[in-house]
Each structure stands twice: as C-alpha cells, then as structure tokens.
Amino acid sequence: MNLLDPIGWAVVLLVVGCGLIALETFIPSGGILSFLAFIAVVASIVVAFNRSLTTGLSFMAVAGLAIPLAIGLALKIWPKTPMGRAILGELPSEEETKPDDPRRGLVGRVGVAQSLMLPSGAVLVDGRLIDAVSQGIAIEPGQPVVIVEVRANRVMVRPAATEEAQAAAFEPDDVLARPIEEFGFDSLEDPLA
C-alpha cells in the first residue's frame, strides 16, 4: 500500500527542505540543518526526475524559487524573534535615526524673504539668514514667508497669509532698514563746521 505517489513525496521533501532552511535561521545548528535541507531538496528533485523529465525540471525550477524565498522570509522574521532581538538589539525608531538639525524648530515660524526666490533664495528668520526654497511660487524680497518643512538640507517656505504676517508682528532685524533716530545719534552733521 502506497501512501503517496512519487509527486507527493517530491512535494513533501521540498517543503521539508525549505522548512529546514528556514529553521537553520532560528536555531543555530552549525550547518547540520542546512545539510539535512540540502539532502531533502536533492531527494525531492531525484524523486521528481524518477517520475519524468519534465516533472524533474519543473521541481528544479520550483526549488530554485522556493529556497531563496524561504531564506528571505526567515531573515525578514528573524529580527522579530527573541534570539534576533538578543543578537541585534532593539531597532532604533525613526526619530532616533534622523539627523539632529536645529532648523527643525523653525517649522511654522514667519520670516522675511531677503532675495528674489525663484525658487531658492535667502530668508531672514529670528535674526538668522537661512537658505530656503519656495514651494514653486516666486517670492519677492521683503515678502513675509512661513517655513513649512525642513527636509534633508532644504528649508521649504511659502508666502505668508496677511493674518500670519500680522500675528507674527515682526520688526525688521536689518540694521540698515531702521531709522537713524533709534540708535541715539543726535546729528550726523559735522560738529566743527
């Protein structure tokens, strides 16, 4: 009495071989499980070739796809297992992997365009001159802008709405734009004349 025909045995041996390959990832056996997996996959192909040439070739093709798939799936799952976490440690969060950029605190701040932005130019924010890129809109010098995001090495800005510019109530930090009376000089005329 035969429990399985040769195709059934070939399928079982191929599944056992792929399972042993995946198990080798989780249980370090020094290559014993990999050797047993190799024997199971080769036996599967031999049994399939005993059936017919086309069946054997098709099992070789299936084994060529199933083995890398089993290895890839095992390596994808492995870091989530207790042994994988013990060896690799905890994976860093997305916030921990971002570079520390002090410009990220400027998001939402209102500044003034210092140059014509087509689309890049200079923006004055909190007394600091920053290179920025507009979101595809030409911005005239002196126009209020809002910092939208900081991504990689780019500071993205957009024109500020009138209520945003009024809410910021910024004064020009440019020394040359202030009236001379603010500096306490009596007169710039020649006192000896």
Rank of each mutant, 00 (worst) to 15 (best):
P172L: 11
S52T: 12
F26H: 10
D101F: 12
A138V: 15
T81A: 01
I71K: 03
V112F: 10
I130F: 07
G30D: 13
V146P: 04
E182Y: 13
E140V: 01
V16C: 12
A122G: 07
F170T: 09
G111Y: 09
P82S: 01
I147P: 13
A22S: 15
I71G: 07
G136P: 11
L91P: 01
I87R: 00
G17K: 07
E96T: 04
M83Q: 13
G56Y: 06
E95G: 02
L129N: 12
L73Q: 01
R128G: 07
I32Y: 06
L118S: 15
P144K: 01
G56W: 08
G136S: 02
V16Y: 06
Q114A: 09
G105A: 14
R51S: 13
I180R: 09
I180Q: 00
D174N: 15
E164K: 04
E94L: 10
Q135C: 03
A152I: 10
V41I: 15
F26Q: 04
L106P: 05
L20A: 08
L129I: 13
F38A: 10
M156I: 15
S93T: 10
I130D: 03
M83S: 12
A138N: 15
G121A: 10
D100G: 03
I139S: 08
V112Q: 03
L188W: 05
L75F: 10
P102Q: 04
F185E: 07
D126Y: 06
F35M: 14
V47R: 11
I7H: 08
G111T: 10
A168G: 04
A138K: 14
A86G: 08
A63D: 09
N153C: 02
K80S: 02
A138P: 02
V62S: 02
M117A: 00
I27Q: 01
V112Y: 11
V110T: 12
P79V: 00
A113W: 08
G127V: 09
V41H: 07
A40H: 01
L53D: 10
S115A: 08
I27C: 04
V155L: 13
V16S: 07
E96V: 06
L14G: 00
E95S: 09
T81F: 01
I32E: 04
V16W: 06
R158G: 02
V155I: 13
T25E: 03
P79D: 00
G17Q: 11
D100W: 11
A63R: 07
A22P: 11
D100C: 05
L36G: 14
G17R: 10
P141T: 09
L23S: 09
T54V: 07
A167P: 04
V46Y: 15
R154H: 05
L88C: 03
Q114I: 08
I130R: 01
V112C: 00
P28S: 05
R104P: 04
M117C: 06
A132K: 01
R103V: 13
D174G: 11
G64A: 13
G31F: 03
P119C: 12
A169S: 15
P79W: 01
D131E: 15
L20M: 14
A70G: 12
R103T: 10
E189T: 11
T162I: 14
L36I: 09
P159E: 13
A169Y: 08
E163K: 09
A10L: 09
N50V: 10
G111E: 04
V146N: 03
